[in-house]
């Protein structure tokens, strides 16, 4: 990013503070889980914060928060903060299991999928 980066331990709170504009990970993370699937609804724009542009790029197909974290090499807590912005203005969508689906239906679907492996 810039030269001063080299003086930082990349994972330090100071560095993360800059990327998120000083916002703190809220405890509920806007309902985001490590395995919430994120899908971009638009392409990255010129002049966009680089981390946000990267998220839009890697999420052209559905990708979990954990995978975004792995590809961007940033902690999931920080990715969640960045995603909150992208979700707020509809630049990405989040997909989670239908909460009205009974547990048993989800369990059966997982068993069925594993048996086909």
């Amino acid at each position: 990013m810039n030269d001063s980066d080299e003086e930082w331990d990349e994972g330090t709170p100071e560095r993360l503070y800059v990327i998120t504009g000083g916002r703190v990970d809220s405890s509920d993370r806007a309902g985001l889980d490590l395995v919430t699937l994120i899908v971009a609804r638009q392409d990255p724009q010129v002049g966009m914060q680089p981390e946000l542009a990267s998220i839009l790029r890697v999420c052209r197909s559905p990708l979990s928060v954990a995978e975004i974290s792995a590809y961007l090499v940033l902690p999931p807590s920080l990715i969640s903060v960045l995603l909150t912005d992208l979700l707020a203005d509809g630049r990405v969508e989040a997909r989670t299991p239908d909460p009205s689906l009974p547990d048993i239906a989800l369990i059966e679907a997982v068993i069925h999928g594993l048996q086909k492996l």
């Binding site: 395995v35 919430t36 699937l37 899908v39 990255p44 680089p50 981390e51 542009a53 990267s54 790029r57 890697v58 052209r60 197909s61 559905p62 990708l63 979990s64 995978e67 590809y71 961007l72 997909r95 989670t96 299991p97 239908d98 989800l106 997982v110």
Partner: peptide, 21 residues
């Protein structure tokens, strides 16, 4: 942003992926 390498094409989920556990 430019150096972030996303999933390889064979590692991409289909657009139909609706939920994960």
């Amino acid at each position: 942003s430019e150096t972030v390498v996303g999933p390889r094409s064979e590692d991409r989920l289909p657009a139909s992926a609706a939920a994960a556990v």
